[in-house]
């Protein structure tokens, strides 16, 4: 196993994901547009006047929500990251790939490269749309870079969860019901839509153990407050994400080894 071989495998596998996406133009459009349309534009406009700016501590609801939508996009992409491998497992394509002399990890790495690239692009699109609706990033372009890094770090753990599920479940029905069970509570029981201070006490407690809250609380000040408020939050998010990723990658690797041998 040489590096050239590894690079060739990963490239060929990543190319497959890109080709698939380009064949599913409709699905690509919806993947890209859905978070902005549903959450940022509809939800943002809906609550623009209902939300209390004092409680939000933001110029308006849309700018408050932007950080939440960025992280929700990372969440959804990450949790869906294993779906294609699930189908590959079910229709025998995975086994075909595993019967070739590839390093077992190249399938996983190719999936990561693809999911991360898509997520990164979506984050940029969401921030651009928010900009059109008047949301100005307090930390500017360097802030965008930090948001992307935080998004990627969160995505690593989430995609690992998704792939672990894909390799462990008996049927894809199980997979999608577990995904549904995970994703909405993770959104509602976090600071994505309302600040913690506006939640009932028990919800605050749950939201505090949700890594999503910590990620959003780092992204949001980068958008609405500025570096002084953001830096300690970003530092905290890095610590939380290091733990989160370590746990998820460990579990994911175990599930992968059990399924692939």
């Amino acid at each position: 196993m040489t590096f050239q071989h590894y690079r060739q495998e990963v490239l060929a596998l990543t190319m497959r994901w890109v080709r698939r996406l380009s064949r599913e133009k409709f699905s690509m459009l919806f993947t890209l547009v859905q978070p902005m349309l549903f959450w940022l534009i509809f939800f943002g406009s809906l609550f623009q006047h209902a939300a209390n700016i004092q409680v939000l501590q933001a110029p308006n609801y849309m700018s408050f929500l932007a950080g939440g939508v960025v992280v929700m996009t990372v969440l959804n992409n990450g949790l869906a990251g294993g779906v294609d491998l699930l189908f590959d497992k079910e229709n025998g394509f995975l086994e075909r790939m595993m019967s070739t002399p590839i390093h077992r990890s190249s399938v996983i790495l190719s999936r990561y490269l693809f999911v991360m690239a898509i997520t990164g692009m979506q984050i940029l699109v969401i921030l651009s749309i928010a900009f059109i609706f008047g949301v100005r990033l307090e930390t500017g372009l360097p802030g965008i870079a930090v948001i992307l890094v935080i998004g990627m770090l969160f995505g690593v753990g989430l995609t690992a969860i998704s792939m672990a599920l894909a390799f462990s479940v008996k049927s894809h029905g199980d997979f999608f019901s577990m995904l549904g069970f995970l994703s909405l509570p993770m959104i509602f029981l976090s600071s994505a839509l309302v600040p913690l201070s506006a939640m009932p006490g028990w919800m605050q407690v749950v939201a505090l153990v949700n890594p999503m809250t910590w990620v959003i609380d780092a992204v949001r000040p980068l958008i609405i407050t500025g570096w002084d408020a953001a830096i300690p939050r970003v530092g905290m998010a890095f610590v939380i994400l290091a733990i989160f990723d370590a746990v998820c990658l460990y579990g994911g690797a175990k599930a992968f080894r059990r399924a692939i041998g």
Binding site: Q8, L11, A12, L13, M15
Partner: peptide, 9 residues
């Protein structure tokens, strides 16, 4: 076939 060409190096 191209994909498999990559996987078989």
């Amino acid at each position: 076939l191209e994909l498999l060409g990559g996987l078989y190096h």
